[in-house]
């Protein structure tokens, strides 16, 4: 059996390491707390000590920098040929026909509706509910207990914070950050942030 290396930092590294170890009790599961230099570049030298033929990997980095850092870390590992299968929690429910991309993490207690499409590198927290036939873009971060209605479309690198629910068929543009509890019923363009303490949406124009 191949060994598994969990690469990341902080709480998500702890969570992912414990989860994979529980899921693969007989496998050699290790962890690597990755360092960054003053310019926030990852130190990737440790990868030279591993071979894609012998080790699979999982990138466990949090949602900072609009999820770019986790995407960057995944890309660096994937680019060296390592397999990065998704983690599906033991207590997660995954409906018929749902698809989950590489390096995604579906926490225990999450519900993935039938026919849902989850791209790569997505985090889904405990008790989150992803509706029937909804679509979640790469590197999205969906906190615990978030509810996404059926056929909703969540863009790449979106962050949905605690207490957020998305109405059915609503489309949220990429890189939106919805961190104010509430029910979001209207489509949002990309790069809209609902964050404390600002009045109304914070927006990026270009």
């Amino acid at each position: 059996m191949k060994s598994k290396l969990i690469v990341g930092t902080g709480d998500f590294l702890d969570i992912a390491f414990d989860a994979w170890r529980a899921k693969m009790p007989d496998a050699d599961v290790k962890r690597h707390d990755i360092a960054q230099d003053r310019s926030h570049n990852f130190d990737l030298e440790f990868l030279d000590g591993y071979s894609p033929g012998e080790t699979t990997m999982f990138a466990a980095f949090d949602n900072r920098f609009l999820n770019f850092k986790r995407l960057e870390l995944m890309g660096a590992i994937k680019g060296r040929g390592f397999q990065m299968e998704p983690y599906i929690g033991v207590g997660a429910l995954v409906g018929a026909g749902a698809r989950i991309g590489e390096n995604s993490f579906i926490s225990d207690g999450a519900v993935i509706g039938a026919q849902a499409r989850l791209q790569h590198n997505i985090y889904v927290g405990p008790r989150a509910v992803i509706g029937y036939a909804s679509q979640i873009g790469q590197s999205a971060w969906i906190e615990a207990a978030v509810v996404i209605g059926r056929r909703a479309k969540i863009g790449a690198q979106v962050l949905l914070g605690e207490g957020v629910s998305i109405a059915e068929q609503v489309e949220i543009g990429r890189m939106c950050l919805l961190d104010m509890p509430g029910h979001y019923r209207e489509n949002l363009p990309e790069k809209v942030f609902y964050v404390f303490p600002f009045d109304g949406p914070v927006r990026i124009f270009n």
Binding site: P197, F198, D199, G200, V202, R203, I204, F205, N206
Partner: peptide, 10 residues
């Protein structure tokens, strides 16, 4: 630059 973030707070 043309890419600009705009926030409001009372």
């Amino acid at each position: 630059d043309s890419e600009v973030l705009v926030a409001r707070v009372r």
